[in-house]
Computed example of a mutant assay.
Amino acid sequence: MFPSLLVLLYVGHLLADNALQTDHQAGRKAAPGAAGWRANLTHASTHVAVCSLALVVVAAVLGEGIGVLPGAAAVALIGATHAWIDRRWPVTAWIRIARQQKWAAAGGAAHVDQAAHVLVLAVAALALTALS
């Protein structure tokens, strides 16, 4: 079940992060204040919705048993951590701690961001596999 969960959650992530994210969300999700949080949480909610759909596909199409509470906890984890990572300061802090400033300036920050998101997807998929 783990491979199916990870692939479908990753596809959901790619859809929510690329095809479904608006210019407004992308430009303001890390901004200070209520407007930044509104854009951020709207974007994170898209991840919750799309990843929830991915879990429904795993359950219905692939016949894998995923409990409602574990599934809800997994998508809540994905949404909450996505919102946190997308505030950008966690990525910036990691880059500073890992001494990756030159690499980040050359476009590496986006890779650190995506690696953090995929790590959470893998943890969610592992947890769901263990609980199912």
Rank of each mutant, 00 (worst) to 15 (best):
F2S: 09
F2D: 08
P3S: 10
P3K: 07
S4D: 01
S4Y: 14
V7M: 04
L8N: 02
L8C: 09
V11K: 11
V11S: 07
G12I: 00
G12Y: 05
H13F: 11
H13D: 01
L14C: 13
L15R: 08
D17L: 07
N18T: 15
N18P: 06
A19S: 07
A19T: 03
Q21M: 08
T22P: 12
D23V: 14
H24I: 05
Q25R: 10
A26N: 09
G27M: 09
R28E: 14
R28S: 15
P32H: 03
P32A: 13
G33K: 03
G33A: 03
G33V: 11
A34C: 07
W37H: 00
W37P: 10
R38L: 10
R38A: 13
A39L: 05
L41W: 14
L41Y: 06
L41I: 02
T42E: 07
H43W: 04
H43T: 00
A44K: 10
A44L: 06
S45I: 04
T46Y: 03
T46C: 02
T46F: 02
H47R: 08
V50E: 05
V50T: 09
C51Q: 13
C51F: 05
C51A: 13
S52T: 14
S52Q: 05
L55C: 12
V56L: 15
V56G: 03
V56N: 00
V57M: 02
V58Q: 02
A59G: 15
V61K: 01
V61C: 04
V61G: 12
L62A: 01
L62F: 15
G63K: 12
E64Y: 09
E64I: 12
G65M: 05
G65F: 11
I66D: 00
I66T: 04
I66C: 10
G67E: 12
V68Q: 08
V68N: 04
V68E: 10
V68M: 11
V68W: 10
L69S: 13
P70F: 03
P70L: 07
G71Q: 07
G71A: 10
G71D: 02
A72W: 00
A72H: 02
A73F: 12
A74Y: 00
V75G: 09
L77P: 12
I78A: 06
A80L: 05
A80P: 04
A80D: 04
A80W: 08
T81R: 05
T81V: 02
H82I: 08
A83N: 10
W84K: 03
I85A: 05
D86R: 08
R87D: 08
R88H: 13
W89D: 01
T92G: 15
A93I: 12
A93L: 15
W94M: 12
R96P: 03
I97D: 11
I97L: 15
A98L: 05
A98E: 11
R99F: 05
R99C: 04
Q100P: 02
Q100C: 08
K102G: 13
K102H: 13
W103F: 14
W103A: 14
A104N: 00
A106Y: 04
A106C: 06
G108R: 08
G108Q: 11
A109N: 15
A110M: 14
H111K: 15
D113S: 09
H117V: 00
V118K: 06
L119D: 00
A122Q: 11
A124S: 14
A124Y: 08
A125V: 10
L126A: 14
L128D: 11
T129C: 03
S132G: 15
S132I: 06
